[in-house]
Simulated assay, not measured.
Amino acid sequence: MKRRSTPRIGVKGSVSIGALAAIFILTVFAPLIAPFDPYKQSLQDILIAPLSPYSGSGGTSLLGTDQLGRDVLSRLLYGGRLSLWISIAAVSISGVLGSAIGIAAGYFGGRTDAVLMRLADIQLSIPSMLLAIVMVAVLGSGLTNIVIVLAVTGWVTFARVVRSQVLSLKEMEYVEAAKAMGVPHLTVMLRHILPNTLYTIATQAALQISHMILLAAALSFLGLGIEVSTPTWGGMVNDGKSYIDSAWWLSTIPGLAIAAVILSINLFGDWLRDRAEER
C-alpha cells in the first residue's frame, strides 16, 4: 500500500514559522528574558549607545538607553508583547464578527447581502487611520478601547473575503441537499459552510495581524494609544524622533522590529495562502 506523502513546508514556511516562533518566545516571556526593568529610570545612563556599560543596574545595555536612561531592549520586548496581544485580540474579535457577517451575506443573498455589503462599503470609504483616530477621540485611550477600535476597523476585510467564498460554497450539492432535507439555515452555515471557510479565515487573520500591529503603532506614535509610560513600539519611535541625529537607536531599532514582525507575519500569511490553493 502506497503511503500518502505529507506536504513539505518549504523555505517560506520554515523561515516564517521560525521567525514567528522566536518573536513569540521573546515577547511572551519578556519578564523572564528582559535584562532590566523597562520602567526604571537612570539619570546617569541617559542616551548611552548600544553595547555600553549600564551603571543603573550593572551589566551591559545591548541596545542602549533612551532619554530617561531606560533600557531599550527591555522596553522593546515588553512593547512587543503588548503589540502582539492587542493585535491578536483585535483580529479575533474582528474575525468572528466579519466572518459571521460575510457568511450571512453570502448565504442569504438578496436584501440581507445588499444591506450588509453597503455597510461594508461605507466603512471602506473611510480611511482606517482616520476612523481609528475619531473613535479614540470619542472612546478615549486605554488598552480595551484600542482593541475595540482596531476590531471595528478590521471586520470589513473578513466579511468581504468570506462572502466571496460563501457565494460559491452555497451552490455545492451537499449544501443544496441539506437545505432540501429541511436542515435549519443556522445548522447549514455552521456545519457545512463555516468549516470550508476556516482556511481562508486563518489566512486573512494572519495578514490582518500585521495590519493591526502597524495601526496600533501609528496610534501610539500619535499619542492616541496606551499611556505614554507604557512601553509600545510606536511610542518608542515617537520618543526617539527628537534624538535621531544624536541617538539613532531610539527610533531605528523599534522601527526595524516593527518591520521584521510584519514581514514575518506576511510571509506566513503568503505560505498559508499557498497551502490553501494546493488543497
Rank of each mutant, 00 (worst) to 15 (best):
D37N: 15
Q123I: 02
L250I: 14
L47N: 14
A21G: 15
I86E: 07
G13A: 13
K241Q: 13
I25V: 15
I25M: 15
T157L: 06
L68S: 12
K241H: 08
D66N: 10
G18R: 12
W233N: 07
A105N: 10
Y174H: 15
I88A: 12
I133Q: 01
Y78G: 03
R75D: 05
G18H: 12
Y78H: 14
S128G: 15
G140D: 05
V156C: 05
V11K: 05
F29E: 10
E227Q: 14
I122F: 07
W85F: 14
A132I: 09
W233K: 07
M172C: 04
L167I: 13
P50S: 06
I265R: 05
T144D: 06
I88R: 06
G269I: 09
P195R: 13
L256R: 06
V156A: 03
F36E: 01
S83A: 06
V91C: 05
S99D: 07
V162E: 03
M181Q: 14
W233S: 02
W155S: 03
G64M: 00
W249Y: 04
S141H: 12
A257Q: 06
I209K: 00
F221P: 02
L62K: 09
G182V: 10
R279C: 01
A177G: 09
T144W: 04
D245A: 14
L263F: 12
V11I: 14
S42N: 04
S52H: 10
Y243Q: 00
V188I: 11
A30C: 06
L194M: 13
P184R: 09
I9S: 11
Y243E: 08
H185T: 15
S92V: 12
L190R: 03
M172R: 15
Y107E: 01
L256P: 00
S5E: 13
A137H: 02
D270R: 04
Y199P: 07
F158K: 03
I33A: 11
M129Y: 08
L63S: 08
M1A: 15
D245G: 10
L77N: 04
L82I: 14
S92R: 02
A105M: 10
A104C: 12
I23Q: 08
L26R: 10
S94K: 05
I23A: 13
S16T: 12
A178Q: 11
A218N: 10
I226R: 09
I103L: 07
A34C: 01
L250C: 00
R75G: 03
R75Y: 01
L263S: 02
P38D: 07
S87F: 09
G69V: 02
I46M: 13
S168Q: 13
V147H: 07
G10H: 08
Q67Y: 12
G10F: 10
H192C: 05
L73W: 08
I126H: 01
R160F: 00
L272W: 04
V162I: 14
L116C: 04
A217Y: 00
V175K: 15
L119T: 07
N266D: 09
V91Y: 03
K2I: 11
W248L: 12
S92F: 15
R118I: 10
L47G: 03
G109T: 09
S83Y: 06
P50I: 11
A90H: 07
G182T: 03
V91E: 08
L198E: 05
F221T: 08
A178I: 11
V115Y: 10
T153R: 07
A104V: 15
V134C: 06
F108M: 08
L20S: 08
